[in-house]
């Protein structure tokens, strides 16, 4: 935890969650753990916010959930991307790439212009 933690930009959490579920279905704890480890704990994400995001996207039809049994044999709620969720993931990552590109362009441009 040497690095400073950052607050997440509004709406960004959804993209991260979608991405976390893009390869396989996971339960909430796995999603949280995946994001945490993938970003090396860059973002300070409250677990409550993560679940809110999951449920909101389930309601929107981007995710679908099912109850399964975890590796430790307990009842767990697994989330998976729906086709609509996959479309949303593509759209949102495209937006992000262009956003980041634009930000970088500005930051790396010459000061004289």
């Amino acid at each position: 935890m040497g690095r400073r933690q950052m607050n997440l930009l509004q709406g960004t959490l959804d993209v991260l969650v979608l991405r976390a579920l893009s390869a396989e279905s996971r339960h909430g704890y796995e999603v949280a753990a995946w994001i945490r480890s993938t970003t090396d704990g860059t973002f300070e994400i409250e677990d409550g916010a993560l679940y809110t995001s999951l449920h909101r996207m389930e309601k929107r039809g981007w995710l679908q959930s099912s109850w399964g049994v975890s590796d430790t044999n307990r009842r767990a709620k697994y989330y998976a991307l729906t086709p609509a969720g996959r479309v949303e993931l593509n759209r949102a990552s495209g937006d992000w790439a262009r956003y980041a590109e634009a930000v970088f362009k500005v930051l790396e441009s010459d000061q004289e212009a």
Partner: peptide, 14 residues
């Protein structure tokens, strides 16, 4: 009930 289960599971794992 589902909410209890889901969040309880999360906390337990954590």
């Amino acid at each position: 009930r589902d909410l209890d289960d889901e969040l309880g599971f999360h906390r337990q794992k954590l």
